[in-house]
């Protein structure tokens, strides 16, 4: 008997994950649209007029890449973190553990589902931004590359969060205390070069800074940080986290007794 091909299991899992967030679209897709619309109204329309142009574009336009990136990151992260933790909590994760699905396929399936939610959220926010600001898209490939990388990176992050979480409270701690501050301090509302030292240097440790910078380069060109540096940085972190998640999964951390 040959080992089971991993394609059908992967597709099955990825589809189940997508099906889950589509089924609860009112809780998964609508809230970020409302939040980001509020940002566009308050910062873009009301305050934007006073701020004037930033890096050669109107303020409402300037914040679009960051808003899209925020949607991608939150969507991908929360999807996997919540879904994986819930599976652990309800013990339905055992459905996967007793089957011949390989750990890499389990990780890949969850990451694919989460990444798709992140990308879909980003796309919807981009569509909404059209009502408030009509951002140019100078380098669509760069934009897509960064959206994709961010989606994958934070889906893996969400997986790790779900793997480590022992309770529903745990599952939210990382988001509240680490992810959200990192997002707000990643230059979505201001150019990092405008910060005084030492904040500018400190900001550079924040991986989301590179994603926002890359995303902004996709929209407007003229990156603050070279695109290749950002891409490389994020790719390396993604591979590192993937390997860590896979290793923990193979050990059965928090899953098998």
């Amino acid at each position: 008997m040959a080992t089971v091909s991993q394609w059908v299991p992967f597709r099955t899992l990825a589809w189940r994950e997508c099906h889950r967030f589509l089924r609860i679209w009112k809780q998964s897709l609508v809230p970020p649209l409302i939040t980001q619309s509020l940002y566009f109204i308050i910062f873009g329309a009301f305050l934007g007029a006073r701020v004037g142009d930033v890096q050669g574009v109107g303020y409402a336009q300037f914040i679009v890449p960051g808003m899209v990136m925020m949607g991608v990151i939150n969507g991908a992260f929360s999807n996997v973190a919540f879904s994986f933790f819930a599976a652990k909590f309800q013990r339905s994760i055992e459905e996967l553990l007793v089957s011949p699905v390989k750990p890499a396929t389990i990780l890949g399936g969850y990451v694919a589902g989460g990444a798709l939610r992140g990308l879909l959220t980003g796309l919807l926010i981009f569509a909404v931004s059209m009502f408030f600001a009509r951002p140019a898209v100078e380098h669509p490939f760069v934009l897509v590359a960064f959206a994709l990388l961010a989606a994958v990176l934070f889906a893996i992050g969400g997986f790790l969060n779900g793997l480590f979480a022992k309770s529903f409270d745990d599952a939210g701690v990382f988001t509240t205390f680490i992810l959200t501050p990192l997002i707000y301090l990643s230059g979505i509302f201001y150019p990092v070069t405008a910060l005084p030292e030492p904040w500018q240097t400190i900001s550079r440790i924040n991986p989301i800074l590179y994603l926002v910078s890359g995303m902004r380069a996709g929209f407007f060109g003229n990156p603050e940080i070279p695109v290749s540096v950002s891409l490389g940085m994020v790719a390396v972190i993604s591979v590192g986290l993937w390997m860590l998640a896979l290793r923990l999964l193979k050990q059965g951390r928090g899953l098998t007794a």
Partner: peptide, 28 residues
Amino acid sequence: VVPQEFNFSIFETPFDICVTQAGFYGVP
């Protein structure tokens, strides 16, 4: 395996639960 304790997602339907499980074993 039929476990001693319930271990399926209470939000999913019996149909989806079973079809998904078959997929995990490579059944198209």
